[in-house]
Simulated scan of single mutants.
Amino acid sequence: METVKRLISSGRGVVIFSKSSCCMCYTVKVLFHELGVSPIVHEIDQSPEGKEMEKALKRLGCKASSVVPAVFIGGILVGSTNEVMSLHLSGSLVPLIRPYRVLSGKHAQA
């Protein structure tokens, strides 16, 4: 549990816990990159502590059926794919990530 909390709080704003073979994780990572954010991604299936991290994410409020992707913005659990996409479609995601966007090219204007 402490490892997960440390990883969340030491991030640059957007932290994603993912599995390398998960298509929904890939979709969420691409979305953040398209919005100009370079999230810190922890591939729990490639970590020796992956099973413990998954248990810790469940204790932090991630749904048992969809532990990954687990997206944290500013140290706060946003949720998984459904929650992130709902925020994006409602126009609420960009204001949340604005402080963490890379200011270059097309992303500086949006």
Rank of each mutant, 00 (worst) to 15 (best):
E52P: 07
M1L: 12
K19M: 13
E43W: 02
H107W: 11
T81V: 05
M53S: 04
C23D: 10
V30H: 07
I76M: 14
G11L: 02
F72T: 03
G105R: 06
D45M: 02
K63D: 15
R101G: 06
S80D: 10
L87W: 00
Y26V: 05
S18A: 08
I40V: 15
G11I: 01
S38D: 15
L103F: 04
S80N: 10
E83F: 03
M85Q: 12
R101S: 06
E49K: 13
S20T: 14
C22E: 04
H33S: 12
P69W: 01
Q109R: 08
C22K: 07
V30E: 14
A64I: 07
R59L: 14
V30C: 08
P39V: 01
E52T: 02
M53I: 02
M85P: 02
P69T: 00
E52N: 11
E83K: 07
I16Q: 04
V30I: 12
A110I: 08
S90H: 05
H88Y: 10
V30P: 04
N82H: 09
H33W: 06
F17S: 00
V4A: 15
A110C: 06
K106T: 15
L57K: 05
S86V: 02
V28R: 05
L87P: 02
H33Y: 10
I76N: 14
A108M: 07
I40S: 15
V28Y: 03
L103R: 07
G74W: 04
M24H: 09
I8C: 10
I73E: 13
S66L: 07
N82V: 06
G36P: 14
L103D: 11
A70L: 10
S18G: 07
K5L: 14
S38Y: 09
C62M: 14
H42C: 09
H33I: 08
L60Q: 01
L60V: 01
C62E: 09
K58W: 00
G11Q: 03
I44C: 12
S21V: 10
G91T: 00
S86I: 00
I44R: 07
H88R: 01
M24C: 04
Q46M: 14
P39T: 05
S20F: 06
E54N: 11
I73N: 11
K106R: 15
S10W: 00
S90P: 06
S18I: 04
M53A: 03
R101I: 10
R6T: 12
Y100M: 12
L87A: 07
V68Y: 04
V37G: 13
S92V: 03
S9M: 13
V78Q: 11
M24Y: 13
V94N: 03
V67R: 05
G50P: 14
L93M: 02
E52K: 09
K5T: 13
C22V: 08
I40K: 15
